[in-house]
C-alpha cells in the first residue's frame, strides 16, 4: 500500500481531468463546455506542479540556509499557461456570444438541428 500512496496526487489529477473531459464531451451547453475545459486545464496545471515538488524542498526563491528548492521549471511553464488560458477562455466566450447572436441559442443540439433543417435558410438574429 505504501508504494501506491506516492501516486495519489496523479490519481487526483486523473479524476479531475476525466471530470473536465466528461463535461466537455457530454454537455450540450457551450458555456459549460468552456468551464469543463477550464477544469481540464487546471488538472494539467496541478499535474505539472506536483511533478516539480521535491520532498522537504522550499519555494524556488534563493535565500540563505535553504538547501533544497522545488523545481522551478514547471512553475514557469504553468505561470504563463494560466494567463494564456484566461486569454483563450475570453476568446471562447466571445465566440459563444457571437453564436448566441447568430443562432439565438447556445445549446449545441439546437444549433445542429437548425443547421440541418433545409427550410430554415438563414438563422434569424433573435437577440
Amino acid at each position: 500500500m505504501d508504494a501506491f500512496s506516492g501516486l495519489f496526487n496523479y490519481w487526483i489529477v486523473v479524476v479531475l481531468m476525466m471530470m473536465g473531459f466528461y463535461i466537455v464531451i457530454s454537455q450540450q451547453n457551450l458555456i459549460k463546455k468552456i468551464v469543463g475545459l477550464n477544469v481540464f486545464q487546471v488538472s494539467v496545471f496541478v499535474f505539472y506542479i506536483s511533478m516539480g515538488k521535491i520532498k522537504g524542498g522550499s519555494a524556488p526563491i534563493l535565500a540563505d540556509g535553504i538547501e533544497i528548492y522545488s523545481n522551478p521549471l514547471p512553475h514557469v511553464l504553468i505561470l504563463t499557461a494560466i494567463v494564456v488560458g484566461v486569454a483563450t477562455t475570453a476568446l471562447g466566450l466571445a465566440l459563444t456570444v457571437r453564436i448566441k447572436n447568430a443562432y439565438g441559442t447556445i445549446e449545441e443540439d439546437e444549433i445542429e438541428a437548425m443547421e440541418n433543417t433545409p427550410s430554415n435558410k438563414t438563422p434569424e438574429a433573435t437577440s
Binding site: 494567463v83 484566461v86 486569454a87 475570453a90 466566450l93 466571445a94 456570444v97 437577440s127
Partner: peptide
C-alpha cells in the same frame, strides 16, 4: 500587455452588453 488585454476584453464585453440593452 496583460493589463491592456484584460481591460480591453472587459470593456468590449460591457460595450456589447450595453448595445444589447439598447435594442
Amino acid at each position: 500587455t496583460v493589463a491592456g488585454a484584460m481591460i480591453t476584453i472587459f470593456l468590449i464585453f460591457d460595450g456589447l452588453l450595453r448595445a444589447e440593452e439598447e435594442d
